[in-house]
Amino acid sequence: MTTIAGTWDISIKTPVGTLQVEYLFTEDSSGTATMRGETTPLQDVVVDGAHVTWRQSVTKPMRLNLEFDVSVDGDLLTGQSRAGRLPRSQVIGQRRA
């Protein structure tokens, strides 16, 4: 089982405010993100021990291509995301029981 598998409640602190997103990661290193009724597939999920990266596209609050780089420690996740040339955004999350 990968260290990321499960359902996560993740906060992304962006220049337009903090976004609350539900992430679902599967044991085969795939997953989805759901926010405000929009569910998007995750792309290129790579799990290397506690280090996890992935990409995704969103259309809300605006159309963006995001890249994530996080570390998982048990049921806690911390790291950052980046949308093109925009500043990096802090990412924190907790796995649901």
Rank of each mutant, 00 (worst) to 15 (best):
I10Q: 02
E22A: 12
A50K: 12
T3G: 15
Q20G: 11
E27Y: 03
T26C: 03
D28P: 00
F68W: 01
T14G: 01
V70Y: 07
I92V: 15
V45I: 04
P15T: 00
V70G: 05
G74R: 02
R63H: 15
Q90K: 13
V91E: 07
S81Q: 03
G31H: 05
R88D: 10
A50I: 10
R82F: 00
R88N: 11
V91W: 01
L86G: 02
I10W: 03
T7G: 11
T40I: 13
Y23P: 00
Q56E: 14
Q43D: 12
I92N: 08
I4L: 14
I4G: 01
A33P: 01
V58Q: 11
D48K: 13
A5S: 10
T39E: 13
V70T: 05
P15F: 01
R36E: 14
S30A: 06
V72L: 07
E38Y: 01
E67V: 14
S57E: 11
V58S: 11
G74T: 13
T26Q: 03
R36N: 15
H51G: 05
I92F: 06
D48S: 09
I10M: 06
T7S: 11
S89Y: 08
A50C: 07
G37H: 05
A97K: 08
T59L: 04
A33L: 04
E22R: 12
F25I: 10
R96Q: 14
W8M: 06
I92A: 09
L19I: 08
S57I: 05
V21Q: 06
G74E: 10
P87F: 05
T2D: 09
G37R: 00
D73H: 05
V46E: 10
W8V: 02
M35I: 11
T40E: 09
W54D: 03
W54L: 03
L86Q: 10
V21F: 00
R85F: 15
P87W: 02
K13V: 11
K13G: 07
T7V: 09
T53G: 04
T53V: 13
T32P: 01
W8K: 09
F25D: 05
A5H: 07
A5F: 06
V21D: 00
S81F: 02
V45C: 11
A33T: 09
A5D: 13
L86C: 04
V52D: 03
D44H: 02
R55Y: 13
E27A: 07
T3W: 10
T18W: 12
G17L: 01
V21A: 00
K60W: 04
F68I: 06
T40P: 01
S57N: 13
R88F: 04
R55T: 15
S29A: 15
G93E: 09
P61S: 01
K60R: 09
T14Y: 03
D9M: 08
T7L: 04
R96K: 11
G17Q: 05
A33W: 05
S29G: 02
R95T: 07
T26H: 08
G31I: 09
E67H: 05
T3D: 12
V91I: 15
G37Q: 07
S71V: 15
R36P: 11
D73N: 07
M35W: 04
V16T: 12
